[in-house]
Design a protein around this nucleic acid. Structure first.
Length: 205
DNA sequence: AGTGCGATTGACT
DNA sequence: GTCAATCGCACTA
């Protein structure tokens, strides 16, 4: 992929994110995540997502109400909610639905397309398959930290999303990974068989 | 001011 | 397959 091709990709607008997060999570599969850094462009295809609901979902960060940390989830749709966890990892979410409702979608897997050498440096590995498989790795590869929390993703700034680079394969659905509350809900979506989908094999094929 | 724990990863058996 | 590391945040006092 080159700059010309990136230029032709159309930006996902707020309306895309302004609906049920389950629909958004599914629709995000195959979409392009683009990161503009001073060093150059990083980009990849989204292959795994999880939806977190605003009401009745105990696993969502918003479940206990609005706080300083999760405030972005309660804001308008299409904004980056980036948080730090386990003392090591950043995770990228996109705020969903209307203002006042704490919903969002977690990005868990990315198929690298552009800037792979930079991603390898960010991840301190030469491996391709481990580059952006899993939410923490995805964020590290794309150099996403808390400094991007609250960023409007519906403008072509340092981070934005674009229309599909190519059609999406078969979509799988499963329970969400790594949560204890509301663990039975089928709110994880992924492209079946894609090597950049995280989790056990039983949840990736 | 102290406590408990988490939407994970990487190293190791 | 198991398991410890690591620290910001929310909550209690």
């Amino acid at each position: 992929m080159n700059m010309t091709a990136l230029g032709r990709i159309s930006l996902l607008k707020a309306e895309f994110y302004n609906r049920d997060p389950r629909r958004v999570a599914r629709a995000l599969l195959g979409k392009l995540l683009v990161r503009k850094t001073p060093r150059g462009i990083l980009a990849g295809r989204i292959v795994e997502t999880e939806a977190y609901l605003g009401q009745g979902d105990a696993a969502a960060h918003s479940a206990a109400g609005k706080t300083l940390r999760n405030a972005v989830l309660f804001g308008p749709p299409g904004y980056a909610y980036v948080y730090f966890i386990y003392g090591n990892h950043y995770m990228l979410n996109i705020s969903g639905q209307r203002k006042g409702v704490g919903e969002g979608v977690l990005l868990r897997g990315l198929e690298p397309l552009e800037g792979i050498e930079w991603m390898q440096r960010h991840r301190h590995t030469k491996s391709l398959t481990e580059l952006s498989r899993g939410p923490g790795r995805l964020a590290a590869a794309m150099r996403i930290t808390r400094s991007l929390n609250g960023l409007d993703l519906c403008a072509k700034g340092p981070l934005w999303l674009g229309t599909a680079a190519r059609p999406t394969g078969k979509i799988g659905v499963s329970v969400r990974i790594g949560i204890t509350q509301d663990a039975h809900r089928l709110l994880r979506f992924y492209e079946r068989g894609n090597p950049f989908v995280s989790g056990p094999k039983s949840l990736s094929t």
